[in-house]
């Protein structure tokens, strides 16, 4: 897109015409996991569109769309919970374990789940 086109977008529509499609690596991973799970036949794309639609239609969605992948992730979590693949409690506990593991990992080293200093909390101890 050239500058003339980029400048032609007025204030009411969101800026960032040429913003990268993923702002953070986790957004790309959430997107790709959804595509992979659909390929695997875990859900139809219509099921996915319904789940995503329910999330993006909630009041309070940002008008600039920056929270789009937060809605995407919420939709994926709900769909996986409904399918009995990953319950909210399991995801909560494992996410907390990942946060502890990240905090305990020295800067510059890869974050591994086994770096979690309190693996007995939640499910962390049984993973990895």
């Amino acid at each position: 897109m050239n500058r003339r086109e980029a400048n032609s977008h007025a204030a009411m529509l969101p800026a960032g015409v040429d913003a990268p499609v993923f702002a953070e690596p986790w957004q790309a991973t959430a997107f790709a996991m959804t595509v992979a799970l659909h390929d695997k036949g875990l859900f139809s794309w219509s099921e996915w569109a319904d789940a995503l639609s329910a999330e993006v239609k909630r009041p309070g969605a940002a008008s600039d769309g920056h929270d789009y992948y937060e809605h995407w992730l919420a939709a994926l979590e709900k769909l996986l919970s409904a399918k009995g693949v990953a319950g909210k409690g399991d995801v909560d506990a494992l996410a907390a374990a990942w946060e502890r593991a990240a905090h305990a990992t020295p800067h510059g080293k890869p974050v591994l789940l086994q770096n979690d200093p309190s693996p007995t909390e939640g499910r962390g101890g049984r993973i990895g």
Binding site: W26, Y69, E77, V91, D92, L94, A95, W98
Partner: peptide, 8 residues
């Protein structure tokens, strides 16, 4: 969000 994606 990143932690939840890692968990999933």
């Amino acid at each position: 969000f990143a932690a939840r994606v890692r968990a999933l």
